[in-house]
Design a protein around this nucleic acid. Structure first.
Length: 581
RNA sequence: GAACCCGUAGCUCAGCUGGAUAGAGCAUCGGAUUUCUAAUCCGGCGGUCGCAGGUUCAAGUCCUGCCGGGUUCGCCA
């Protein structure tokens, strides 16, 4: 369903056009001053500037034409030339009565890259944002009619793999994979568990940092792995499988689903032909022993180093796999947009890759975009750590949030009579809402301080507060059903209802803005404002005890619409609404 | 050293291509309501939008400089 302001913009735009002005000046938005009007159009100011005319005079002409439209209860000119508009309740009622339709398929494909998960490494707070923000964006794009392909894009092919392999070799954990005389087949059972990997990788990484010989061994192992040494490939397969099972379990517990579990290794076979092609077409060249692709442009304000494709030792880098991944995605999906939801500190890297992809034409019609995000900091304003100073694992963070949710429930004296299973389910749902809403309600690009105590509060701008608002409406509707009251199409009878209807009707604006700016915080604001409007309505009017049957049915209908919109918005945010709380 | 991001109320944060009196939550103070789950509603207090210039009818928003914080700058990802 097109948003109300879009329709109003068309109406007002036609009037601008009728006055010989650009219809784009007719853009209508929800008013910044709700005390003065419901909607406003600032176009007269812009039109006046363009035409070097008096803004109020233009506004007068526009307003005169708009006044003949019966949908408007008020058309006023204010200040330097704002056009303030109110719709009649009849117009609002008609609008809210129209059934909410899902967006039609727009024929466009978006590929969302959640890049950042790595084989052998558990998820930590750093992965929280790419997962939560990326999931929200994929839900949002889908809701708007895009075909969306979410790809975890696993880090499974770099030096870290070589580090692991050489660590396993040194420890003598599974000698068969290192026996050059062994002809296979290799064991089906993995020689290591996820827990082993979580211990092996940091050890290997630290050893390589401390000892150049170890680093060299790791490099060699990486190279041999990529060249296809059978034992290494077999061992690596185990690493990947074990890791994927662990990662899938964790992301599933977050309620996040991916379409593809591709990794850097997926494109390995595409790299050699791609590199040949880039060399043949003169884009790639040798420099200081490495193969590079220059991406600097004359008007650059900062030095832009070339994209490194092949190191002087013959190994490839993540820029190479990123390029090959673009080739693969264009070949398989021909997307209109590839969105990389990755920490903003990698901005420079993506700038290089995007330039290289555009310059060489490998991106096809796809727009490449980096939706970067800031870091999650602890109370001290520094990157979030455990009390012991280590990296905070995602699993531990969720456990903390579940514990906190139970504390909150106990504080409110809630859930004591629920079964242990239901109590646990509700606590988990609250915990995820706490974490997700906290993350999404902060602007994507800024760093924020993770304050679990504040985020988990049941009052204020929090996830649990929104869940509660939805739960309370569910409760009313259930009770109404029990009493045999049937909701009907809502109509406005009071200022509180009018404000609530206006908020319901601005859903499209919020979704559109959130999508265009890749900014989930806009949806969070929308949901919170909706909950506030509902609370005002709820405080001012009785619903079930209303004796006028028609009024009661209308208010129940309004409740049903609010619940539908709230649940739908929370769903896009990846937040579930519990049956009860 | 260079480039990019940030600096808004006591705290945590919004503020769209420049537009009307800069907003929200928390905290604090006061009031309502004793409820359809109070996890509520209404109101007060609180800001020279880092500083100084500039463009404009209009600047938190655009430009320049400075101060303060963060990040990044070819063989890790």
């Amino acid at each position: 369903m097109t948003s109300l302001t879009t329709d109003l913009s068309r109406t007002v735009g036609d009037v601008f056009a009728a006055e010989g002005l650009d219809a784009a000046f007719g853009a209508v938005q929800v008013s910044d001053r709700p005390d003065l009007a419901q909607f406003q159009c600032n176009g007269a100011l812009g039109a006046a500037k363009a035409a070097k005319a008096n803004p109020r005079a233009i506004a007068e002409k526009i307003a005169a034409r708009l006044k003949s439209d019966v949908r408007f209860a008020k058309v006023e000119i204010a200040g330097p030339g704002f056009i303030n508009l109110d719709l009649t309740d009849a117009a609002l009622n008609a609008r809210i009565a129209a059934p909410e339709r899902a967006a039609e398929a727009n024929g466009k494909t978006a590929l969302i890259d959640f890049g950042g998960y790595n084989v052998a490494k558990p998820l930590h707070v750093g992965h929280l944002r790419s997962t939560i923000i990326g999931d929200c964006l994929q839900r949002l794009f889908r809701a708007d009619g895009w075909k969306v392909i979410g790809d975890v894009h696993l880090g499974d092919w770099g030096l870290q793999m070589g580090q692991l392999i050489s660590e396993v070799e040194i420890r003598g954990i599974a000698p068969v994979y290192f026996d050059a005389a062994f002809k296979g087949p290799y064991p089906e059972q993995s020689p290591v568990t996820m827990e082993d990997l979580e211990e092996l990788y940091p050890a290997a990484s630290a050893a390589c940092k401390a000892d150049p010989a170890r680093l060299e061994a790791a490099r060699r192992a990486t190279q041999q792995l990529q060249d296809g040494r059978p034992g290494y490939r077999a061992l690596w397969q185990h690493f990947v499988k074990v890791s994927e099972v662990g990662l899938a379990r964790e992301t599933a517990s977050l309620g996040v689903r991916f379409d593809l579990w591709n990794g850097e290794s997926t494109v390995h076979d595409l790299m050699a032909p791609m590199l040949e092609d880039l060399k043949a077409r003169g884009f790639a060249q040798m420099d200081e022993g490495a193969l590079v692709l220059p991406v600097a442009e004359p008007d650059d304000k900062k030095p832009m180093p070339p994209l490194l494709l092949v190191k002087s030792d013959g190994g490839v880098l993540y820029g190479t796999t990123d390029m090959a991944t673009v080739v693969e995605r264009v070949r398989d999906y021909d997307p209109d947009l590839i969105l990389y939801v990755v920490d903003h500190r990698q901005h420079g890297h993506f700038e290089q890759v995007f330039r290289a992809a555009r310059k060489t034409g490998i991106a096809g019609k796809a727009e490449l975009e980096h939706a970067g995000f800031g870091t999650i900091n602890g109370p001290d304003g520094k990157p979030f750590k455990t009390r012991a100073g280590g990296v905070m694992k995602l699993h531990d963070l969720i456990t903390m949030a579940v514990t906190e949710a139970k504390v909150r429930l106990a504080e409110q004296g809630l859930g004591e009579d629920y079964s242990p299973e239901e109590h646990e389910t509700i606590a988990r749902q609250i915990a995820l809402a706490t974490i997700k809403f906290a993350d999404l309600s902060n602007h994507r690009t800024t760093d924020y301080i993770f304050d679990l105590e504040r985020f988990s509060k049941f009052e204020g701008k929090t996830g649990p507060y929104l869940q509660y608002a939805a739960v309370r409406i569910q409760s009313i509707l259930r009770k109404a059903q029990g009493e045999g009251h049937v909701p009907c199409t809502p109509a406005i009878h009071s200022p509180e209802e009018r404000a609530l209807v206006l908020q319901l009707l601005s859903l499209g604006d919020a979704m559109q803005a959130a999508e265009q700016k890749r900014a989930p915080n806009i949806l969070c604001d929308y949901a919170f404002t909706l909950a506030q409007n509902f609370s005002r309505f709820y405080a001012a009017h009785h619903i079930l005890s209303e004796s006028d049957a028609a009024l009661r049915a209308s208010r129940l209908g309004l409740c049903a619409r609010v619940l539908a919109v709230m649940a739908g918005t929370l769903d896009i945010l990846g937040i579930a609404v519990p049956e009860r709380m």
